[in-house]
Design a protein around this nucleic acid. Structure first.
Lengths: 234, 234
DNA sequence: AGTTCTTTTAAACAATGTGTTAATAATTAA
DNA sequence: TTAATTATTAACACATTGTTTAAAAGAACT
């Protein structure tokens, strides 16, 4: 499970360094935020897991936890010297997935990280999505879309948008949600960008908005993907 | 998050009892297996989470963990007196999701259980309401309503209104409340818009105001949804 | 720097839904 | 029963929302 991005929010440089060295050795890509402000800034990137020290110079760790939960679904492991039962219970209640008390064993931390990532991976599932008896195949890692076996060239934005929709067939996404899938969580511009991209994707797929096979407009709400997932592997 | 089934695999009756009492108090349904043999037998049922003592009279806990992983995807929390770093690292490596060392705080255990179940729930995405033995099914994320298996097309406004009513069966909503469900909380116009939407929804559902099956008028007050929710999943 | 490709913005047009109205029917109270 | 209140229904105009086109702005590449 290499290539996973982990954010370590920790003000004590010595601890941050130890954690980093262990994680790098396991093949993870590690970013370090020394305080809450930079943590929240960095969360505009997407991370696969977050390690969060509760005692930070500028901000309440619990506040960060709550805010982080609004923009990411990644597992959060709280890492802290606060060791009372109450601390642990409220920490877990805040949306954290795990609670590790200092001083901690780096090896155990790594083991816990792997356990959480194993879950996330299982959830994210396969790299290859197939619909309507292989009529449509989307390959996430190669960023390729095939319709009836033929490659449909898409731009990066188009692909992200389309993949985002196809990962949850039938679920209605608002334009704001779709913009957030494509970009970071702080887009300022016009929501209607989405319309333009959808139009281009439809054109490339030969999809008619009136009688769509792939992307359906939900008047007043947004768009949904309507392909039928094939069983297991296509 | 009630109605969750938890399996506790623990040979010491005193500990099993404590755990059970805490879990029952939280509304969970608890089963206890005093040894590995019975644990594997009981795993033919489906559980939402498994608490597994590693020291059992008849069988190696690690073996149980591996076997359990083959038949269920439920989170496994290891509960054990083995507290060395190696124990914990290998335990988590075996497919367990968490590792709690005895003596443990029951409250923390409950908090950890909830954290894991929260994840499982998010994955399952139980946003589906079912009434009158699946006569009526409402799916929130796809914004679809099915009556006797047939899709009932609704506009966004109609869907929001109907979902708002159905989320609290039997509760009377005033027209103002309903308008606020559909729009922001600053609607200026005429409350009777609701009547129009209700009429359209009823028409689409084939519901007669005189003898309604779904939406009942409460003369002088507003409307209520009168379907009977099905247990768990429909 | 210049060129090409991608993304965003803007505006015009088309489609659809919503809120309003007004007439009718039902319910409640006197 | 009658009058007053409240709900139902259908029709319609307007406003909202979606689509498409074209062009400007921005990135990426040579």
């Amino acid at each position: 499970m290499p290539d996973k991005k982990i954010l370590v929010v920790e003000d004590e440089a010595s601890i941050a360094d130890i954690v980093r060295s262990y994680l790098v050795r396991e093949g993870f890509s590690v970013s370090i935020a020394p305080d809450g402000t930079s943590a929240l800034r960095m969360l505009k990137e997407r991370f696969d897991l977050i390690i969060l020290d509760l005692m930070l110079p500028d901000m309440d760790g619990e506040e960060i936890c709550r805010t982080a939960r609004e923009v990411t679904d990644a597992p959060i492991i709280m890492l802290t010297a606060k060791s009372t039962e109450d601390d642990r219970v409220t920490g877990l209640g805040l949306g954290a997935d795990d609670y590790v008390v200092k001083p901690f064993s780096p090896r155990e931390l790594v083991a816990r990280i792997k356990a959480h990532l194993r879950r996330s991976d299982a959830r994210a599932g396969s790299d290859r999505l197939s619909f309507n008896s292989s009529d449509l195949v989307i390959n996430a890692s190669s960023m390729e879309v095939f319709r009836q076996g033929a490659l449909v060239p898409m731009t990066t934005t188009e692909f992200r948008l389309f993949l985002g929709l196809a990962e949850k067939p039938n679920m209605v996404f608002s334009r704001l949600q779709l913009v957030n899938i494509v970009q970071g969580y702080d887009f300022e511009g016009f929501e209607r960008v989405v319309d333009a991209h959808i139009k281009n994707i439809r054109q490339k797929l030969g999809d008619n908005p009136r009688q769509p096979a792939y992307i359906q407009t939900v008047y007043g709400s947004g768009y949904k993907f309507i392909g039928t997932p094939d069983e297991a592997q296509g």
